[in-house]
Structure formats: structure tokens, C-alpha cells
């Protein structure tokens, strides 16, 4: 997926996997590609002169996924980085990416301090997010399971699929959290022996594998419950998937836009949730209309 000036790369790193992110950006810079934008699914690179710049991912202690860092903290970080020969390349969620010439002093000189800061950041976002997902999915799975296995009159052919899908997402949350905890433990051990954190590309691959499993469940659900669509079924599934991806990507970008505009964390979360919910409901309505049109 590349043109002359732009290249897109599928996002294939877990957010805490700073080592792999740095290695990837360094390798891309060597090939003449500099990061321009980071999105929920794609990383956009622009053509540049090949360079041997090195990259560093910083998780500032005062940073937030939904709110800009306090000006005082950002100034302190900028001053220190400037002194050390580092320039800010891009910012995404709670991480800031810097680049420097190879001879610049290392951005991080105490891996133990670095890892604990990454963990502090992950507690506020990654871990909290997956725990909320786990509990909400377990509640939904329990509710659908009770309806289906209790022969509720409100149960239909979609209930068992909803039960399976929510249980599957709950399982994904458990796998993701356990994977992170393993990475943290192994990285702490490696650092205590004088090394750096371990790579976690396996974590993202695992999640991508689980995502494929989820898509299989979703397609099976459509195939089972929308059989009346006949030949239009494939078209319907494609529209549904693209709409879902668009809603996720837009919600993500919108939240980052508000952060960039200096909105507070609370306002950002509230407005982003309202926008995401509205988009999600609109998506359901639009796909329902498409379903009716195809049925005719």
C-alpha cells in the first residue's frame, strides 16, 4: 500500500511495546520514510531522505490519553529533550515520539524507571480499558446466556450468537491482560539482569489472531440470521464491516482532535462517548435500511 510520497502500514504494535515501535521507526527512517500520522488501524509515513536518526518513545508521567499534558510538564520535557539533542516527531494517545542524531545521548538511561512509567500509564488506560471491556462483556454474555438457555420468549436466533460473541470478547480481554502482565514480569526480570524490556510483537499478533476469530463469529451470525438477503449477504457484510471500522477510526481521531485542541479529559471522554454512540446507532439504522433495500 504505497504511492510515491505516502506509505501506510498496518498498526501492528501494542501501545506498551515501545521497543518494537522505536525499532520500526528507525528502520523506516533508514529506508526514507518518516512517520506523519498514527491512527487506530494505520500508520501514515511520508517520503523523506534516508537517515540514520534514532527514535525514542516517551510515556510522560503527567500525560493522558484524553488531555494535553500540563503546560509546565510539557515545557520541562521539551527543555530537557532540546538539551539532549532530541526533537519531537509526533504524539499519539499518551505517548510522545522523539528523534535525534545517532550521537545524541540516549533518551532513557534507566530502564527500570522507564518500565515503571510505562506501567503507570498502562494502568490508567490499557489495563482499565480491558477490565471495563471484560466486565461489560461478561454482563452481556450472562444476560444473553440466561435468555437463550432459559428459553426466554425474548430469545431469537441471534441470541446464541450474541452470547458467543460477548463471551469471545471477554476471553480476548483476559488474554490481552494476561499477555501484558507476562510482558511486564519478563521485562522486569530482564531489566534486573541489566537488559532492556522484551519485545511484545507476539501480543499484537495474538490479538490480531483473536480479531480474525471474532470476524468469523460475526460472519457466521450474519450467515445464520440474514439468510433472507440471498446474494446480497456478502455486500451487506462488507458494508457492515466497513461502517464499523469507520466508526472506530473516526471516534479515535475525534478524541485525539479534542485533545489537541486542549479540551479537558472529562469533556473529551463525555463528548467522544456521545459522538461514538450516535455514530454507532446511525450505523445500525443505516445498515438496517440497506438490509430492507437488499431484501426487496
Amino acid at each position: 500500500m504505497s504511492s510515491f510520497e505516502t506509505r501506510y502500514q498496518l498498526s501492528s504494535f501494542s501501545i506498551f511495546d515501545y521497543k518494537s515501535i522505536e525499532d520500526n521507526l528507525t528502520a523506516m527512517a533508514e529506508k526514507g520514510w518518516r512517520i506523519e500520522r498514527i491512527g487506530a488501524f494505520l500508520w501514515k509515513f511520508k517520503r523523506a531522505e534516508p537517515s540514520n536518526k534514532k527514535f525514542a518513545v516517551v510515556f510522560p508521567r503527567a500525560s493522558s490519553e484524553f488531555e494535553s499534558m500540563p503546560a509546565e510538564s510539557q515545557t520541562l520535557l521539551d527543555e530537557l529533550c532540546m538539551e539532549g539533542g532530541w526533537e519531537k516527531e509526533i504524539e499519539w494517545k499518551q505517548m510522545q515520539i522523539y528523534c535525534a542524531d545517532p550521537e545524541a545521548i540516549p533518551m532513557e538511561t534507566d530502564e527500570a524507571v522507564r518500565l515503571e512509567n510505562v506501567h503507570l500509564n498502562m494502568k490508567k488506560t490499557f489495563i482499565l480499558g480491558w477490565i471495563l471491556t471484560l466486565f461489560s462483556m461478561l454482563v452481556l454474555a450472562f444476560s444473553n446466556g440466561m435468555k437463550y438457555f432459559g428459553n426466554s420468549p425474548y430469545s431469537d436466533e441471534g441470541t446464541i450468537w450474541a452470547f458467543l460473541a460477548t463471551l469471545y470478547v471477554a476471553l480476548t480481554a483476559v488474554v490481552s491482560l494476561l499477555g501484558y502482565l507476562y510482558w511486564l514480569k519478563a521485562s522486569r526480570r530482564r531489566i534486573s539482569e541489566g537488559g532492556t524490556c522484551i519485545s511484545a510483537t507476539w501480543h499484537r499478533r495474538l490479538l490480531n489472531g483473536l480479531l480474525i476469530g471474532f470476524l468469523v463469529i460475526l460472519i457466521s451470525y450474519f450467515a445464520d440470521t440474514k439468510i433472507h438477503l440471498g446474494e446480497g449477504l456478502v455486500f451487506y457484510i462488507i458494508i457492515y464491516m466497513l461502517a464499523a471500522l469507520a466508526v472506530i477510526a473516526f471516534s479515535n481521531s475525534f478524541s485525539q482532535y479534542l485533545k489537541g485542541k486542549g479540551w479537558s479529559s472529562r469533556s473529551n471522554i463525555m463528548l467522544s462517548t456521545i459522538v461514538a454512540t450516535t455514530l454507532f446507532i446511525s450505523m445500525i439504522v443505516i445498515t438496517k435500511i440497506i438490509e430492507v433495500i437488499i431484501s426487496k
Binding site: A56, V58, P60, R61, A62, S73, L76, L77, E79, L80, C81, E83, G84, W86, Y98, I105, P106, M107, E108, T109, D110, V113, R114, N117
Partner: peptide, 28 residues
């Protein structure tokens, strides 16, 4: 903070160098 980066190097005669990312997080 910038003074600390310089002073740590001076005091230790270059043996200890504190990176900007590490120093920022330590100060916080």
C-alpha cells in the same frame, strides 16, 4: 532540570549520563 543533566556528567566525570526522558520522569 537542564542543570542536573550537566552537573551529573561533571560530578561523575562523564561516568553517569542522565537521559532527558529519564530525568523528566524522575523529576515528576
Amino acid at each position: 532540570g537542564v542543570d542536573v543533566m550537566k552537573r551529573a556528567r561533571e560530578v561523575t566525570e562523564g561516568r553517569v549520563c542522565i537521559g532527558p526522558g529519564t530525568l523528566y520522569n524522575l523529576i515528576e
